Computed example of a mutant assay.
Amino acid sequence: MTHRHFRRAAGRFPTGVTVVSGTLDGRPHGTTVNAFTTVSMDPLIIMVALGQHSRLRTLILHSGAFAVTVLSARQSRDARWFAASDRPDGEEAFVGRPWKPGPHSGAPVLLDGVGYFDCSVRATHTAGDHTVVLGNVEAFDVLSEEPPLLFHDSRLVPAPANESKERT
């Protein structure tokens, strides 16, 4: 069994795509993450997994707060941008992308997303080459009724064009 084979098998499970963000000393940072899930409804807890060597991981551990924006099907470009290791740091990374500071963390919430969660760090756990971060949800909201962006078979997959915006 190889890492590539494991990744291929795991890629059969579609996931949503998020941008996890934080701020430290007034400098915002964000990165694309598809390892995100809700954990508890009482209390409200979510989970993200960040690479052990991620700048964002270090920033979140120091600041104790972060935000998660769930991306819309129209945000493939943003997903790729925040995944690129050569993107600029700080506010430059967010130029041309409408955002607001999360009400609790001050971390960027991308306004073109479909929803957001603004969190304080509840706990962290080392899990191999990642750190699992549990967040107490301090604020959240729905940003739009657009379909979400998905990740499946190692690629971004926008929702089908004929998907109805009506919810039944």
Rank of each mutant, 00 (worst) to 15 (best):
120 S>F: 06
90 G>R: 11
18 T>C: 15
154 S>W: 09
129 D>F: 06
164 S>M: 07
109 V>D: 03
39 V>L: 09
2 T>L: 12
42 D>Y: 11
147 P>G: 12
154 S>T: 10
3 H>T: 09
88 P>G: 07
59 L>H: 03
94 F>M: 01
99 W>N: 04
8 R>F: 11
164 S>G: 08
6 F>W: 14
105 S>C: 12
145 E>I: 11
33 V>N: 00
126 T>K: 10
22 G>Q: 04
115 G>D: 01
85 S>N: 12
136 N>T: 15
86 D>M: 07
142 V>Q: 14
49 A>N: 05
67 A>E: 04
81 W>L: 14
151 F>P: 01
79 A>H: 03
9 A>V: 15
90 G>H: 12
164 S>A: 13
90 G>W: 13
122 R>Q: 07
40 S>W: 02
13 F>G: 10
79 A>P: 02
124 T>Q: 09
167 R>F: 14
35 A>Y: 05
141 D>F: 07
144 S>A: 13
98 P>G: 07
134 L>M: 11
92 E>V: 09
26 G>I: 04
41 M>R: 12
73 A>L: 00
97 R>S: 09
28 P>R: 05
133 V>T: 04
62 H>L: 13
15 T>S: 15
104 H>T: 09
155 R>F: 08
82 F>G: 01
137 V>E: 00
119 C>E: 03
162 N>E: 14
70 V>E: 03
135 G>C: 02
39 V>H: 02
31 T>Q: 11
45 I>N: 05
51 G>I: 02
58 T>G: 15
44 L>S: 10
29 H>M: 11
79 A>F: 05
154 S>K: 13
106 G>N: 14
68 V>M: 02
157 V>I: 13
82 F>P: 01
138 E>S: 03
111 L>W: 03
68 V>T: 02
103 P>A: 14
157 V>M: 12
39 V>T: 04
52 Q>Y: 02
53 H>R: 15
64 G>N: 09
108 P>D: 13
111 L>F: 09
156 L>I: 06
1 M>N: 12
91 E>I: 09
89 D>I: 07
43 P>G: 10
91 E>K: 12
1 M>G: 15
8 R>N: 14
26 G>F: 08
18 T>E: 07
46 I>N: 01
55 R>M: 07
87 R>S: 01
23 T>F: 03
